[in-house]
């Protein structure tokens, strides 16, 4: 398979369990090497341009990358440190926009699955990353939170960002144009 993503584009990957959605996303992020072929960023293989690529990449994976023993705010502070370009959005504001501002000083182990997923998604707001890669960003979320995330994605696209995500659901991206690729069971 082959696809290209430009600024202001959203690509949704759909497919049955085990069809390789997650592996595809991890390959795009450079976490696992591609069996064949390559991932290019600005016409250069990502292995040769790690710095440039990773500074524009934000990833929320199947494993959220959240420490149970840290509070929601402390977790986001780490994300800020790891980000190449921290945005002007504060940790408190980011958590507030995802509707979990009031539990920012709670340890993440005490949070529900949906709340933890929102902490992970708040990562997208504390850094200025052009390219978002999201693996099933909506699974554990309630209706309202799903709406919030869809709006965030829509705004990012409208502002010229790029989003690659996996989801089974048919989604409304605030009227933004998007493509869907269905992976078959290979």
């Amino acid at each position: 398979m082959s696809f290209e993503l430009k600024s202001g584009e959203l690509l949704q990957i759909d497919g049955a369990n085990g069809s390789g959605k997650t592996t595809l996303l991890r390959t795009v992020c450079g976490l696992v090497p591609a069996d064949e072929g390559n991932v290019y960023w600005c016409n250069r293989p990502i292995q040769q341009n790690r710095q440039g690529y990773f500074s524009q990449l934000a990833f929320v994976g199947h494993k959220h990358g959240i420490k149970d023993e840290l509070t929601a705010a402390e977790n986001l502070e780490i994300d800020q440190i790891l980000a190449a370009n921290p945005s002007s959005v504060s940790v408190r504001e980011a958590l507030g926009r995802l509707g979990i501002g009031e539990c920012r000083h709670q340890l993440c182990r005490e949070l529900s699955a949906g709340q933890r997923q929102r902490v992970a998604l708040a990562r997208l707001l504390v850094s200025i990353a052009h390219f978002w890669v999201l693996d099933e960003p909506l699974t554990a979320l309630d209706q309202e939170a799903q709406r919030t995330v869809c709006d965030l994605v829509g705004q990012h696209i409208a502002a010229g960002g790029m989003v690659l995500l996996t989801s089974h659901q048919k989604l409304d991206w605030s009227g933004q144009a998007h493509r869907i690729i269905k992976l078959g069971n290979a």
Partner: peptide
Amino acid sequence: FEDGSLEQMLISSR
């Protein structure tokens, strides 16, 4: 590695 923090470090440009 188990909670995914390592991934975030690996894809950091720092």
